[in-house]
């Protein structure tokens, strides 16, 4: 899942968290920035193939 607040993923034991680094209300980037949006989806799918317990940040 995309997570915006540092520490939440650890506290909830979320199996795979993607810290997108964007603000609340804009978890997948700015409006109409579809290139970033595609990259967020790509990173989430990549993370889904990893073992549970991983937290990654937008590359």
């Amino acid at each position: 899942m995309v997570s915006l607040i540092p520490g939440i993923a650890e506290k909830l034991n979320i199996p795979r968290a993607f810290m997108s680094g964007f603000k609340l209300g804009r978890p997948c980037g700015e409006p109409f920035d579809f290139e970033t949006r595609q990259e967020v989806v790509h990173q989430m799918l990549k993370l889904a193939t990893e073992p549970a317990g991983k937290i990654v940040h937008l590359e």
Partner: peptide, 23 residues
């Protein structure tokens, strides 16, 4: 409980369904 100003103009910001279809 969050500012929906951005999501209202571009829903993909919180629901990237077109990008998932693209994948």
């Amino acid at each position: 409980y969050y500012d929906t100003k951005h999501a209202n103009v571009d829903k993909t910001i919180v629901f990237p369904l077109p990008q998932l279809r693209e994948s």
